[in-house]
């Protein structure tokens, strides 16, 4: 099936590299193949990722493993209630000579070289911090010390646990819309993986586990270029375009598309959302998946594989249904795919 043109040899090489990357991360993080695949897609789609899950399922480990395998500079902050935007930008202290010093904070410290900025427990930070992050994510720039810093390779990975709600700040819709994906992480179901995670001492020392991953499997500096090549190299047929538009329409107006969910007023279910940016992200990520699967054209399966993670958090439900979001949105997405014809 690999009918790439000769000029696309670079893409073929990179696909092999992506495979190595997945294998490297998968060696350290067990039973999360789907999350690793989605993270790989996000890397090559140049999108930011929000990981969501229970405490201790390996969100941080997964992101550290990805950062390690990707190479490049990596910074990490922990969200807290008293964190202010300036804490990200600069750091003040009294030096040995007794003079106050101002030094670049976590974001600026590695400046242009920063490839992964990892925001732990993002929902513990205040909205002011979210606002700073918004710009960082959307424009990959930051103004500080009277100049503008650019982060061409930057990708923001964030995680939040969904157990606690005290002292947390819900991410504003605008911030959530800027994340390419929201990946829900669960403990692996596979008994073998569970046994290994619990009994194999290799998985107990996270630092050693991460250190064992071969570093810099991918050339992080070349990622933006290869990402653009993928976007140009993967074709979208008119049929797939019609399919994506059909999915979009059905998601926003499920009642009109003939979707019925038990116990839900379909006309009043979806309030809005599913922004054009979201659908553009969807196609972007679908192209990456098609490339990872060894095709230079998209198929509906590419869309379906990434749809829940990309579109799920962009749909805004009526407040009455918002509390049951975790069960309604997957049902809605499944119904959309069972209804919209392809081709």
């Amino acid at each position: 099936m690999n009918q790439f043109r000769s000029g696309d040899a670079m893409l073929t090489d990179w696909r092999a590299a992506a495979g190595r990357f997945e294998a490297a991360v998968g060696g350290a993080v067990l039973g999360q193949d789907r999350a690793i695949r989605l993270l790989t897609i996000a890397l090559f789609a140049r999108g930011h990722v929000l990981l969501e899950g229970d405490v201790g399922v390996g969100k941080t480990t997964l992101l550290r493993a990805v950062a390690r395998a990707l190479g490049g500079a990596y910074e990490r902050v922990e969200g807290t209630v008293d964190m202010m935007p300036t804490d990200l930008v600069y750091h003040t202290y009294l030096a040995d000579d007794g003079r106050p010093r101002v030094e670049p904070g976590p974001v600026l410290r590695r400046s242009e070289d920063l490839s992964i900025f990892f925001f732990n427990e993002i929902n513990r930070a205040r909205p002011q911090v979210h606002a700073l992050l918004l710009r960082l994510m959307a424009e990959r720039t930051l103004t500080a010390f009277n100049r503008e810093y650019r982060f061409p390779n930057l990708q923001v990975f964030a995680d939040r646990n969904r157990v606690e709600r005290e002292e947390t700040f819900e991410l504003p819709a605008a911030a959530r819309d800027r994340f390419l994906m929201e990946i829900g992480l669960e403990a692996p179901r596979d008994a073998g993986a569970r046994r290994a995670l619990v009994f194999d001492p290799r998985f107990h020392d996270t630092d050693a586990l991460i250190a064992a991953i071969p570093g810099a499997v991918l050339d992080h500096a070349a990622l933006p270029g290869i990402a653009a090549a993928i976007q140009h190299g993967i074709q979208a047929s008119p049929a797939i375009e019609a399919y994506v538009i059909g999915l979009w329409e059905a998601l926003v107006r499920p009642g009109d598309a003939g979707i019925r969910l038990p116990g839900i007023d379909m006309e009043a279910l979806v309030q809005g959302g599913a922004s054009p940016r979201g659908v553009a992200f969807l196609v972007r990520a679908a192209r990456v998946r098609a490339w990872l699967e060894g095709r230079d054209w998209m198929v509906p399966e590419d869309i379906r594989a990434i749809f829940p993670e990309i579109m799920g958090h962009r749909v805004f439900l009526e407040p009455i249904y918002e509390m049951r979001r975790a069960s309604i949105v997957p049902d809605l997405v499944r119904a959309v795919f069972e209804t919209v014809p392809a081709p």
């Binding site: 509906p300 399966e301 379906r304 795919f337 069972e338 209804t339 919209v340 014809p341 081709p343």
Partner: peptide, 20 residues
Amino acid sequence: ALLALHHAIDAAAGRRLLAD
């Protein structure tokens, strides 16, 4: 012709069936 067969498979499966 392909579409006709697709519709039949979709109807038999009760949902839209993709290659996978």
